[in-house]
């Protein structure tokens, strides 16, 4: 159905059930945070898993999305859906410019350029206090009514919004991978010179994927700003860029559900290990090392390998 394999369809049903049940068992804010990061990681995985490009600067689009949404809703009094859509557009526009610059390079050089460009955005965020609030960030973003009609002040109301956007994101990412475009990207990854000899211009396809990843990051950032009511510098910093890469690798690079599981584990660790203070990062590092040593395919990747079915 919809081009999902059997195992993927079962996983999707389980995912939907978990998304519906979660707010009755865990703190809704944590569950929403997981979904925002999962959406961010899904986009990042389009780049890492499908194109095979490691970006170390995805936080730039995530952060810009958050700032854009926060600014529009708080300072201009616009409704949340406009903020979130604008966040996605802002991320996509920045992705179009940065992608155009970065796609000229490969491998480690690509990673370094994305990192450098994201650092520019970070320092921009520190300086442009009128837009970003600088060190203070944007505080107290109001949860105004969706479309001006449905109030989101209640945690369960905004949860429904986040859940719907997230699930649409999952289906969208699956569609991109299983589209005529996705087929071309897979072939480029398999044998780029051969694609060139068939008249393809691989850079165009990589740029589109880069933009799609940036749009998803921007939407995720905007959504997160709405949920938390706050947008800070840490969302645009290098640590966040690293975190999303960690989520993708932990969950399973190149899988549909891996980034979601990765986001769940990383955010759950941050939340439940919070009493350990600075040790969270050490524990995270330890888990990452174990993951790389024991199951390189990531959790979902390993599962898919055992089941011999894409997940």
């Amino acid at each position: 159905m919809f081009g999902f394999s059997r195992a993927q369809l079962i996983s999707l049903v389980i995912l939907i059930a978990v998304v519906i049940a979660a707010p009755f068992f865990v703190y809704p804010i944590v569950a929403m945070q997981v979904m925002c990061y999962a959406l961010f990681a899904l986009g990042t995985n389009l780049l890492m898993g499908s194109v095979g490009l490691l970006s170390l600067g995805q936080a730039a689009y995530f952060g810009l999305g958050g700032y854009t949404a926060g600014y529009l809703v708080q300072s201009l009094g616009l409704t949340p859906e406009i903020g979130i859509v604008a966040g996605g557009l802002a991320g996509g526009l920045l992705g179009a410019v940065f992608g155009w610059l970065a796609i000229r390079r490969q491998d480690i050089y690509f990673a370094m350029i994305t990192l450098a460009l994201a650092q520019i955005v970070y320092f921009g965020a520190v300086q442009l206090t009128g837009f970003t609030g600088g060190e203070n960030g944007i505080q107290g973003i109001p949860r105004s009514a969706l479309f001006g009609l449905f109030p989101l002040a209640n945690d369960h109301a905004i949860y429904a919004l986040v859940a719907v956007v997230f699930l649409i994101g999952v289906v969208f990412v699956h569609r991109v991978i299983h589209s005529p475009f996705g087929q071309v990207v897979r072939a480029v990854r398999d044998n780029e010179p051969r694609m060139v000899s068939l008249g393809y211009r691989p850079a165009s396809y990589k740029r589109i994927m880069f933009i799609l990843a940036a749009v998803l990051a921007g939407i995720a950032g905007g959504l997160k700003a709405m949920v938390m009511g706050i947008q800070t510098l840490s969302d645009v910093g290098i640590a966040t860029s690293g975190l999303v890469v960690l989520m993708v690798l932990l969950g399973g690079i190149g899988t549909i559900f891996g980034p979601i599981v990765g986001a769940l584990i990383v955010i759950a660790m941050q939340y439940y290990l919070a009493p350990f203070g600075a040790w969270v990062i050490v524990i995270q590092g330890g888990i990452f090392v174990i993951c790389v040593l024991v199951f390189r395919r990531g959790i979902v990747g390993e599962l898919a390998y055992r089941l011999k079915s894409p997940l």
Binding site: F2, G3, R175, V176, S179, P180, F181, Q183, V184, G199
Partner: peptide
């Protein structure tokens, strides 16, 4: 994959394969 490009089915990421 060779037939796709000329026939304009290589950029549509929103369509099913």
């Amino acid at each position: 994959i060779a037939l796709q490009r000329e026939r304009g089915a290589s950029f549509d990421f929103w369509r099913s394969d």
